[in-house]
Design a protein around this nucleic acid. Structure first.
Length: 280
DNA sequence: CGCCAGGTATGAT
DNA sequence: ATCATACATGGC
């Protein structure tokens, strides 16, 4: 069997601050990556309409993908952001220093906005394995075939024409209606996801909340995980507990501009060890 | 059976 | 404005 599913190779020199693929691709910000069944440390999946297999080699990122779209992947993996400098700031705070020891190479992705809208609508009051399953069935049913059993994420135009019955196989429950209503708002241009990228964070948040099934928390996830607004902090039950307990006055001032990255590290750490947020 | 899962929408104070 | 409750589904 070929080692390389997607022969054309793309290689990026070790980014500042490093990259931990497992921590980054499997930490609850993206739902379409899975460990390669045979090759340890290797991940395969789809970003938007771009399939790929990823692995690390001596600190470098190595990507197998049908077309070598370097700019796309550089942006997707946030390789141009200096995480080493951000880690330096986090080192000044005992809690974040500890989180950093736990997951040093975690990065915040810049995913496709529409895909992120949908995956986080689905995430509400749901668990991660089930979110994965619903997203997978959505793409297999309505996404563009990309070969090798992979599918792109269906566009808002395609989803806007679907019915409740079309999406019944997803088993998404009441979120199905939210997906369809949101697809129609985006497809009609009533909510403009490109324009939102140019808005100040507060206005962008408000605009995203016009979508069905999108409240403040989901909107924050979209700004953080699709638009690179790393100051945005999605507050779920876990993070709320941690913040109340450990940062009653909010982040240290130097951390504020990178609160979303700090949040992501803490979330990852909690998932590995649920103690952090809970006890005295 | 009841509880929970990266919440949100809705209607009542 | 704040607060309680229902909401589909599946795993434990």
């Amino acid at each position: 069997m070929p080692l390389l599913l997607h022969p054309p190779l793309l290689r990026f020199a070790q980014p500042p601050g490093g990259l931990d693929l497992a921590a980054t691709l499997d930490c609850g910000q993206a739902f379409r990556w899975r460990p390669h069944p045979d090759i340890p440390g290797c991940w395969q999946g789809v970003a938007g309409r771009h399939p790929a297999t990823l692995r690390m080699e001596e600190g470098d990122v190595v990507l197998e993908t049908p077309r070598p779209e370097e700019a796309f992947w550089r942006r997707y993996l946030d390789l141009d952001r200096d995480y080493a400098a951000i880690h330096e700031i986090f080192r000044g705070d005992p809690v974040l220093a500890q989180a950093l020891d736990c997951c040093p190479g975690i990065r915040v992705l810049r995913q496709d906005p529409w895909e992120t809208v949908c995956t986080f609508i689905i995430s509400a009051n749901n668990n991660i394995p089930r979110i994965r399953g619903i997203v997978e069935r959505l793409c297999e049913g309505w996404g563009e075939p990309l070969g090798e059993g992979l599918y792109g994420f269906p566009s808002p135009q395609v989803m806007a024409r679907l019915t409740d019955q079309d999406l019944a196989p997803l088993r998404a429950g009441y979120r199905t209606g939210y997906l369809l209503a949101s697809a129609r708002l985006v497809a009609s241009g009533e909510v403009d996801l490109d324009a939102i990228g140019e808005l100040p964070t507060q206005s962008a948040l408000k605009e995203l909340c016009r979508l069905r099934g999108v409240g403040v928390k989901v909107a924050s996830c979209i700004l953080l995980f699709a638009y690179g607004r790393v100051e945005c902090v999605p507050v779920d039950v876990w993070i709320r507990r941690v913040m109340e307990r450990l940062y009653p006055a909010g982040w240290p001032p130097a951390v504020v501009p990178y609160g979303g990255i700090a949040q992501q590290m803490l979330f990852h750490q909690i998932r590995q060890n649920p103690r952090l947020g809970l006890e005295p």
